[in-house]
Amino acid sequence: MSTVVPTVHIVDDDASFLVATSRLLRASGFVVKTFVSASEFLAQRDVEAAGCAVVDLQMPGLNGLDLQLALGRTRNPMPVIFITGHGNIPMSVRAMREGAEDFLTKTAPKAALLHAIRRALARDAREREERARRREICARFEKLTEREREVLGHVVRGRLNKQIAGDLGIHERTVKLHRTNITTKLVAPSVAELTRLAHEAGLLP
């Protein structure tokens, strides 16, 4: 995994607005990439790229909301800020419900736009970190054998070795062996830590 520079992706069919916005954002110190349509963005963006998307809501072809939905289904979604010439309430409600970072008009003050972008970038960094961490934990869990995973299930539910041995029909010493392997592979010294990891990996409700 390379260190990625957060990039602001601007998607707008209006070339003039696209250029003007990218100028402002570059001058404000952001790394910017521009796309003239939603499909171009989905096809050409760096799938691992960090950052956010500033998207025109009304575009021919795929519109901003379609882009938001498509992005949400990828492994690497990024926060979306909607820009519109003139928005209406139902559209903005829908956009926000889908997790849009903000909803701004094209004539919104610069401060509002920059503030929204900074917030989106911060959120993206947080979410990327979260995603990376979860991926790493999941990788650790991948190393467990089928039996170890079974034993882990009992352990995190707070059952004693003897009980686990009885349940699975194996020797108590074998259970202890499995537990040693689990703590080594998952790098979790205590039951509390094991439970937390299992929770983060989505193995516990």
């Binding site: 209006d14 003039s16 607005f17 916005t21 100028r23 519109t84 010439g85 209406n88 094209k106 004539t107």
Partner: peptide, 25 residues
Amino acid sequence: ASALAHEINQPLGAILRNAEAAELF
């Protein structure tokens, strides 16, 4: 009104952004 606002906000938005960028430059 909606169509007009949309139509007119495109160039107005672009002007705004350009002006803001120019100030920074």
